[in-house]
Computed example of a mutant assay.
Amino acid sequence: MTLNCAVLDDYQDVALSMADWSALEGSVEVRSYREHFGSEEEVAAAVGDCEILVVMRERTPFPASLLDRLPRLRLLITSGMRNASIDLGAAARNGVTVCGTASNSEPPAELTWALILGLARHVVTESAALRDGGPWQSTIGADLHGRTLALLGLGKIGAKVAAVGRAFGMDVVAWSHNLTEERAAEHGVRRAGSLGELLEAGDFVSVHLQLGERTRGLIGAGELKRMRRTACLVNTSRAAIVDQEALVLALREGWIAGAGADVFEEEPLPAGHPLRTAPNFLGLPHLGYVTRRNYEGYFGEAVEDIAAYLAGSPVRTLAVPD
């Protein structure tokens, strides 16, 4: 019997060309969907015939209510080894095996610097003016050398961002709930004593925390007001760590000089979302992990996950949390 497999949210229509799916010929029929399904009803209608699904990060959530709508589903594969939008307990109760893939931390760290540099040197404004025949040199850039880079989180990605900041000659300070003096020192970084101390010190504040109970809404109006009016906030982690309404207000009222983000609470970002027109906002459509090397890894290992599952020995399984 041939099983049906669908790849969801394949925005660039590249999933089937980024890996060799021929190893599954005769056993699995694979199709991909470029469009995003905005409701559980749409997802169930499109892929209800599938035993296998491959999902990209958290583009489409899989809560219990959706998993209950997919009685044929047996294998769910996510890019990366962590996906907070999949209810692993509900998957287990429904007899669904959840597997992941490797994911490289360099691409989101690199994109963080694209946002920081874009904000510091007003790259979009100046490039648009050059193309459109606007004024020659209309902005004055902010220096990085000698300024303070404040990192919320010093994990794999945060540590890579810190190394580049030091190379630019920046003073790097970091904070998280669990950050120790030893880890900060290991990466040549000062440890802030509190979140407020970090925010007050930073010329550029960059978010690199996991989303959880302690970090959801961590940066609200009060925290944004503690930042310097000349400072910029960058978020390439998870949108819900920063209160989105407060961020729009901070930009419109000039609490901070600017903000950059690659993550949004609703993706794709609705056409009328206020961040689209917020002043001094540099937004990208969640490109942090979207590189050829990552995609080849995601889809190549998805093929391996499917083959291993069919052989009765699933690999890279995601365990149900305690």
Rank of each mutant, 00 (worst) to 15 (best):
Leu224Gly: 11
Arg228Thr: 01
Thr230His: 07
Ser237Phe: 04
Gly220Asn: 13
Glu181Ser: 15
Leu179Met: 05
Leu233Tyr: 01
Arg293Trp: 04
Ala240Ser: 05
Val242Phe: 05
Gly258Val: 07
Glu197Gly: 14
Arg276Gly: 09
Gly188Tyr: 05
Ala201Cys: 08
Ala257Asn: 05
Ala221Tyr: 08
Ile256Asn: 03
Gly258Leu: 10
Glu181Pro: 06
His273Phe: 09
Asn280Cys: 08
Ser194Trp: 08
Leu195Cys: 03
Cys232Asn: 04
Leu195Phe: 00
Arg191Pro: 03
Val205Gln: 05
Glu181Tyr: 07
Leu198Met: 05
Asn178Ala: 10
Val242Leu: 06
Gly283Val: 10
Tyr289Met: 12
Arg238Thr: 04
Gly260Tyr: 02
Phe299Asp: 02
Arg228Asp: 02
His187Gly: 04
Glu253Leu: 10
Gln244Asn: 04
Arg228Glu: 05
Glu304Val: 10
Glu265Trp: 12
Val207Gly: 08
Ala240Arg: 14
Gln244His: 01
Gly188Gln: 06
Pro270Ile: 12
Gly217Lys: 13
Asp262Arg: 14
Glu304Tyr: 08
Val205Glu: 00
Tyr295Lys: 15
Tyr295Arg: 15
Ala231Tyr: 00
Pro268Val: 13
Gln244Phe: 00
Gly193Trp: 03
Asn178Ile: 00
Glu266Ile: 15
Pro274His: 11
Glu182Val: 12
Arg252Val: 02
Ile241Leu: 02
Ala278Met: 11
Arg252Trp: 02
Leu251Trp: 00
Leu218Val: 09
Thr215His: 09
Cys232Gln: 03
Gly196Val: 02
Arg216Gly: 02
Glu200Tyr: 06
Gly288Leu: 10
Cys232Phe: 08
Ala246Pro: 01
Phe264Asn: 03
Leu218Tyr: 08
His208Met: 13
Gly217Asp: 09
Arg238Leu: 00
Ile241Cys: 04
His273Ser: 06
